[in-house]
Amino acid sequence: MSRLESIDLTRLRWFVAVAEELHFARAARGLGISRQRLSGTVIELEEELDTKLFVPGAQPTELSADGRALLEEARVLIAAAAAAEPEARPASEDRLRVGFVPGVTVTKWERIWSGRFPDIVLELTPIPMKEQEQALRENTVDMCFVRLPIDREGMSAIPLYREVPVVVVPKDHPIALFDQVAVADLADERMQDAADLDDAAMTMELVAAVSGAAIVPHSIARLHHRKDLVYRAVTGVPETEIALAWPAARTTELVEEFVGVVRGRSERSSRSSSGPRPDRQARQQNSSGKPGVAKSAGGARKPAGAKKPAVAAKPKQGGAKQAGKRRGR
Rank of each mutant, 00 (worst) to 15 (best):
V167T: 07
G264T: 04
S219L: 07
G115Q: 15
L197F: 04
I33M: 14
A19V: 01
F54S: 03
E138F: 06
L244T: 04
R26A: 11
K302I: 00
K308H: 08
E123N: 12
A213D: 08
M191W: 10
G264Q: 10
L31N: 12
K108Q: 13
D50M: 07
A209C: 02
L4S: 05
A208K: 07
A25H: 09
F15D: 00
T240K: 13
K171A: 09
G154T: 03
S6M: 05
K321T: 02
G236Y: 06
K307M: 11
L197C: 01
M202A: 15
R301D: 01
L186W: 11
R329W: 00
S114P: 00
D193W: 11
V237E: 11
D66F: 05
L122R: 03
R326W: 13
E46W: 06
D196M: 05
L49Y: 09
R11Q: 14
R280Y: 14
T203C: 14
R326P: 00
V311R: 15
A248F: 07
G318A: 05
I215Q: 09
G299R: 06
H218N: 11
E253W: 14
L186K: 10
E48D: 06
G99P: 10
D279V: 06
A69N: 12
D50F: 13
A312T: 13
A221W: 13
A249K: 15
A233F: 10
S2H: 10
F54R: 06
K316N: 15
L12G: 02
L49F: 08
P86W: 08
R263W: 00
A25Q: 12
E257I: 02
A19D: 04
L38E: 03
A294T: 11
S2V: 01
A79F: 01
V166N: 02
M202C: 09
A135M: 00
V164G: 01
V168A: 08
A88P: 03
I120C: 08
S156E: 11
R26I: 06
G212F: 12
S211E: 15
V216R: 07
V121P: 00
A27N: 06
H224P: 00
L70H: 12
W246Y: 12
A249N: 14
R111D: 13
K290D: 13
A157T: 14
T252K: 09
P238E: 11
